[in-house]
Design a protein around this nucleic acid. Structure first.
Lengths: 183, 183
DNA sequence: GTCTATAACGGGATAGAC
DNA sequence: GTCTATCCCGTTATAGAC
């Protein structure tokens, strides 16, 4: 009996690294240790199902690392610092990519558009709500949150592009202060 | 006689939208209006050559929109504002993607790693040099520039992911002020 | 330079035995 | 649940006539 979670973990790793188009069934078979038939036994819908399984599998980690810290106890500033630690954990300090980002840029078709938008909105909304608690007006909080998420996504792009994961840490470390700065 | 520049333009459009893996030769043939044989006549190295042609073709636009404004006359603040206008032009206000970003995230292989890193470094360096002119210490200027480019790249990711190009404008508008803020 | 045709390969997906 | 074998298709790439 196979361990679905471990397979889904492998799928996450792979898709985060290669995106949708970059992950051929050969790579998937290698990464999971499963043969083609086994893959289609577990994921009857094919690659599409595998991506959706990866998205589902990441859900709890997203909640734990990217959402929950924003709601935790403590001051807003403390929560933002905890959130940055969650980011570092989720993205392995810039060494792991973002599945949402990879799917958003990869391939022109709209297969996962709804999931992508929902995931982005979830974290933007959570961050905006936290900023609103600090007395920032709703519209401004939303805008700041949007820009912060862009910064995170872009940090991953630049880190990958330069082959230097440290870019990620430098880009997110000052997020708490930047998000709360007076204007 | 064909107009290479127009073909290269079409390649830029396509690769910026779909990345490397997402652009099949069928799409490329459609986008350029050329048949397979003609494509291989003009780009003997195949898709690889086409991407390199697209990168080359974007060079002047990069210089004009993303580099030159930083060196132009005027105060640093004025130049940064001109740079943001260049960004809006180059990325069509968030409606066009970034070829560098698409190549950085798309596919696991390292085919264009050198070109990607060089392109990112060029714009980061130019921006850092401008910030240094404003009296910001070299290391800090470099860090700010890196984060700013991440913000631009991420804005494109989020804009695409949310299906809302306006994200881009909101993310880059405040860059001049944010880059020069005292710390 | 472009056309038609096709080779050569890898992709996703399935069948059926075990 | 997994294996071997295979199918079918789209893909990249080439050949050769025009």
């Amino acid at each position: 009996m196979v361990d679905r979670d471990r397979i889904d973990d492998a799928l996450c790793e792979l898709f985060r690294r290669t995106g949708y188009d970059g992950a051929s069934l050969s790579y998937i078979a290698d990464a999971t240790g499963l043969g083609r038939s086994s893959l289609y036994h577990h994921y009857p819908g094919g690659k599409d199902d595998m991506v959706r399984a990866a998205l589902r599998r990441l859900g709890p980690a997203v909640d734990r690392d990217l959402i929950a810290p924003l709601r935790g106890p403590g001051s807003v500033a403390e929560r933002l610092r905890a959130w940055v630690r969650g980011l570092a954990r989720f993205y392995a300090h810039g060494r792991k990519g973002c599945l949402i980002g990879a799917l958003a840029l990869g391939g022109g078709d709209e297969r996962f558009a709804a999931e992508i938008a929902a995931a982005l909105r979830a974290v933007i909304d959570a961050l905006a709500a936290t900023l609103a608690e600090a007395g920032i007006r709703r519209a401004d909080a939303r805008r700041r949150a949007e820009v912060a998420i862009a910064r995170v996504q872009g940090a991953l792009v630049v880190a990958r592009g330069l082959g230097d994961p440290a870019v990620f840490g430098r880009a997110v470390r000052s997020l708490p202060a930047d998000l709360l700065v007076d204007r």
